[in-house]
């Protein structure tokens, strides 16, 4: 196998592995939104407060997944 293909292979595998981190973000967002929807259902008057906090929590959970995405993008497009 020539070195160029090896580099592509390594990049692809590395980027794929890095994206495993997105699973954590997904679980986190699911839990946060699930909890928020339950709370809103029980307590519709507090919907604005709950929504705000939910968006905050979702943003934080998502940030972790985004870090994984950025790492894999860097592996794919910046490393050479």
């Amino acid at each position: 196998m020539d070195p160029q293909s090896t580099i592509i292979l390594g990049k692809a595998i590395g980027a794929g592995l890095a994206m495993i981190g997105a699973a954590g973000g997904g679980i986190g967002i699911g839990l946060a939104v699930g909890g928020a929807v339950q709370a809103m259902g029980r307590n519709p008057d507090h919907t604005p407060t709950i929504q705000t906090n939910m968006i905050l929590g979702v943003a934080f959970a998502e940030a972790v997944a985004i870090y994984a995405l950025v790492v894999s993008l860097i592996i794919l497009f910046v490393l050479s």
């Binding site: 943003a59 998502e62 940030a63 985004i66 995405l69 950025v70 993008l73």
Partner: peptide, 9 residues
């Protein structure tokens, strides 16, 4: 990175 990642993706 949150904004960059989301919009770039």
């Amino acid at each position: 990175f949150r904004l960059l990642g989301n919009i770039f993706a």
